[in-house]
Design a binder for these strands. Structure first.
Lengths: 345, 345
DNA sequence: TTGTAGGCGTTATCAT
DNA sequence: ATGATAACGCCTACAA
């Protein structure tokens, strides 16, 4: 097939070893002139190393696995881009795997990744503590870092953003705008960010001395449709809330839709907030006030951490927690600025 | 490291060859009982094949390269998901590469992909006809299919959607709504879809006997900011157009923004159309009338085609052209329904 | 500085 | 139905 190290060795009248040395430019192991000659021949013949063969002996493939729920979910592309960019920067490539949050697919992919002898994997999984796929990863000794979701197991490297702080910030912002009855549409209960955000919501209310009212809290699943659904229920049965905090932007979109259909104006009648700051948050009407996560950066940091792990570097912090930030736009208004006598019921 | 074929051979008291046979379950080459025994031992020892070693001899890695401009551009995730899903279905994995439309990055990635001996690549590139990276691909004999963009070189397998038909459809829709002065915000000139769409625009006008007026045509680059910029110019200097067709949704977002700032109402004052039907088209206000491309399907078909190529199947159509479809929403209105005496100047 | 030779884990071609 | 054994392309002691 392609030209191999052998071809160029023959043509240069040297041994395979010598060629190999110049390929991996071992500092001083070859005479400057032979090196030159070999380099030229390599260029002439259009030689490029066979990473497969190399991998077989070095046990390194320079490939990283990136397993996440769904690349077509607007939240993940930035993360993926971040890991790809930094992986590339360090000479690694990434294999993309979509799991749809299905444990089964996760396990299958982890297996495949192992078979491919990837050097490491970046993992965004539904798993809670020690799940099977984590166990597989652990015992296979392949380095990995959890991204975006925490598994709450010490010693497992992870990078994610502080969800309780994020949600707390935005709910406190709502409170500082004089809202007291703040409804909540949560995410699914199978992942840590969702849990953290709920905790942040409760913490904010607690700090402000506002009692938790479960009648204005709904369980969503991060999808637009569930935002719509939850908002509808809230509108039908919720008692006099003036604002609603959503666990992600997508659900806010659905909620917005539900309100629009009923002629409820945002933020004049009800204020709403999202979470994630995906790209559509800024183009909605009204533009959505939300919490921005440093997505791209998270991807970069996860990759960086993983690569250090792979290369056996000594690292102090195996847990990187990023801080989210509030981005104020148009969907929240002070309670005193709300339309006076509006009843949305 | 891991347990190898050798370990299990020893434990089963058979030769490597026999084990290999059961691994690749060669139909009948092993006695049913030995097969059974070997299978069990494999399970016991937690054996999984080393694809690297296998690849070295078979020259097959079961890995496909997916090179596209930018996974964080809302247009691509669906495509990527499509190829990943079908690749996975056939037992392939994909390596993701982001090129940012930079020729240099494209070439680098093609090289890397070659070094990794991927079995094939799916390529979304800026290249026009025979560019260097295509040349590399061609001479390296690795199967590839162009996706989303056509290179206009016969014999190169490609799957894309018919851009002239798409734009023609939507402009004709505008015309059927009695619009005669239809502005156009084009895409960058370095890719075929952009060219095709422009052609579709002109064709539609031509069929309707409407003269092309370059004063209401602007060159954008597919980004939100350029939609904003072009619309601003149009508003400043364009003469009495009642509708504007954008070469993609993102630019329509920018254009919408520009109009909103000036208090121009859409579609009451001006109708607008997008192209691509990305996620946000349906959540804008007004909801954007646009052309939908079967993105996910395109990814699937591209992968399917590539895999056939890889597996040496005989294929009749090396070019798959998908048909886009008009999705009518709220951003276009009949000219007679426009606000009477409005002047947006 | 350079060459020899063994081995990485599998598959594949012969034999047996 | 099985077993030797030679590749596959490269790296790496160990020699020279």
């Amino acid at each position: 097939m392609g030209v191999t190290i052998k071809d160029i060795a023959r043509k240069a009248n040297v041994s395979l070893a010598t060629v190999s040395r110049v390929i991996n430019n071992k500092s001083e192991g070859v005479g400057p002139e032979t090196r030159e000659r070999i380099l030229n021949i390599m260029k002439d013949l259009g030689y490029y190393p066979n990473r497969i063969a190399r991998g077989l002996v070095t046990k390194k493939t320079n490939i990283l696995g990136l397993v996440l729920p769904d690349i077509s979910n607007p939240f993940f592309p930035s993360l993926a881009r971040g890991v790809e960019d930094t992986a590339n920067k360090y000479g690694y490539n990434i294999i993309l795997c979509n799991t749809d949050n299905k444990t089964e697919k996760e396990e299958t992919y982890i297996s495949v990744l192992k078979e491919n002898y990837v050097d490491g994997v970046i993992y965004t999984s539904v798993i809670r503590n020690k799940d099977k796929s984590i166990e597989m990863l652990l015992q296979s000794k392949i380095p990995f870092v959890m991204m975006d979701r925490s598994v709450n197991v010490t010693d497992i490297p992870e990078v994610f953003t502080d969800g309780v702080s994020g949600m707390q910030q935005i709910v406190e912002y709502l409170i500082s705008n004089d809202h007291r009855r703040i409804a909540y549409i949560s995410g699914p209960d199978n992942n840590s960010p969702s849990e953290q955000r709920l905790e942040g919501y409760m913490k904010a209310l607690d700090h402000a001395g506002i009692p938790i009212d479960h009648t204005i809290m709904k369980d969503g699943d991060y999808k637009i449709s569930s935002g719509y659904q939850c908002m509808t229920e809230l509108l039908d049965k919720g008692e006099g809330f003036t604002a609603v905090a959503c666990a992600n932007d997508l659900m806010a979109v659905g909620a917005l839709e539900a309100m629009k259909e009923r002629g409820i104006r945002v933020p004049e009648d009800i204020s709403i907030t999202g979470y994630d700051d995906i790209y559509l948050a800024g183009v909605l009407t009204p533009k959505l006030t939300t919490i921005a996560q440093p997505k791209y950066e998270m991807g970069c940091l996860a990759a960086e951490l993983l690569i250090k792990l792979v290369q056996g570097e000594e690292i102090k912090d195996r847990q990187i927690i990023l801080q989210p930030s509030l981005v104020k736009r148009e969907s929240v208004v002070k309670r005193s600025d709300m339309l006076e006598n509006c009843s949305h019921r």
